[in-house]
Design a protein around this nucleic acid. Sequence first.
RNA 1: GGCGGCAUAGCCAAGUGGUAAGGCGACGGUCUGCAAAACCGUUAUUCACCGGUUCAAAUCCGGUUGCCGCCUCCA
Length: 476
Amino acid sequence: MSIEIYNTPIKRKQQFSPLKKGRVGMYVCGITAYDMCHIGHARSMIIFDTIARFLRKKGYDLTYVRNFTDVDDKIIARANKGGITYQDVSEKYIEEFYTDMEILKVEKPDVEPKASEHIPEMIDMIAALIDKSFAYESGGSVYFNVSRFKGYGKLSSRKLEDMIAGARVDVDEAKKNPLDFALWKVSKTGEPWWKSPWSKGRPGWHIECSAMSTHYLGPTLDIHGGGRDLIFPHHENEIAQSEGTYGKPFVRYWIHNGFVTVNNDKMSKSLGNFLTIRELTKEIHPEVLRLFLLSRHYRSPIDFSRDAIHESRGALIRFYESLDRVFNSPCSATKPRLKNIIDGFNNKFDAAMSDDFNTAKAIGHIHEFTTEVNRTLNSNPEVAEDDVFALRAALSDVSNILGILEQEPAEFLDHIKHADLDKIGITDQEIEGLILNRDKARKARDFKAADEIRDNLKARGIILKDTPEGTVWERE
RNA sequence: GGCGGCAUAGCCAAGUGGUAAGGCGACGGUCUGCAAAACCGUUAUUCACCGGUUCAAAUCCGGUUGCCGCCUCCA
């Protein structure tokens, strides 16, 4: 099935067809390494990780590039404040980022370039832009002249005149037009600098992505991604720089993800309503977080709340419990009993993912699939060997693409069951002891005593289930 | 102020021209000592509101209201 992608500038889905058959170059804006990442960053990383995994699954030879901004005002500010170098700051937070990505099972892109390691490419590009009169030097800094680039605003659906009319940016004497943006900045005392034809300075933010994406993927990218907040001005500026330099279409498909919100406000540093990946994954299983972040369409906002996380946790447990049932079923059926269900699921899952990476719909299909499997097993617990094979294969596809359901069900369920048991203030042994006491009471038909034990445990978040194989317990 | 986006049941949510996926919750049922889990059934004649186009609209067009975002660093 062919893939459809919603392309930001034209605001509709298009059939995906890369520039070179079978090969895809994808560039995604990474982080500015000056602080710990929050779940807004996690969403973007997980979405593009999933897109990359799916493209590979579909057989594309993908080159995935994601940059690190390691020279920037905020990094420098942080370094100066702490009396350390900008490298100390960026290196620390790049390390922290890697730890986060490992926790979240985000696969490494093929190339992770750092801005500081590509200054010569940026200087070359800036020189070319000056040469073509798209840029001008002013007091040692270099600015891009937006009025010289006729397509300016095509990505974000803005007109240059409208933007000038409603401009809020401070008037800068050095600029010809308030919307002109810096390609090269003169370095002030205490700021890092590189030698250039214009001054001892440092690159503007936008030029790094144009220079590095071209360096690794060529002047035309198949896919360029990032958060919605990057559409303007960052990605708009990238187009101006790259198309100005090379005179070729910069990007074939622009993909932008929606924000993580809290009470419907964008999660951000300035609002102070952010939660870091690190603190969150201490209490929330990474697969729960992944499932939550993938359970809404990538372009929509997703509101973070404890309730929403709890719902995703419940859904993940439901999936794993159903899988556990299948893997514990006797392999004695002479004919496959789940094969049709699995085949149907595989097709629907692929169709959903092919339709603009609709993970929300794909997860809906996992729910339906789970219901169908449970229904089949309720009528008769037997399965055939082929069923188990087919399920393992389907499961491996899902986990390879979405990064959930990667664990053995029994292992996952056991983990969830015991996580933070100490917070409740009870041990495994104590619960088992209470279950034994309750069993005795039940055998003596003293249901009042038995129910009291169960109610007390329930009040502490422990649920007892009486099954044909005996009583088992779970966390609420 | 300029520009863009969104509005689907009690809640979350998919759905861009063909007659409303899925999940949570609630209620009824099977099962159970009673529960829990699982399953079955019920839960939007209707998609913020008003007009329009069309044989046909949640989906397209115009307007209104509300919310969010970008225009300054931002995933």
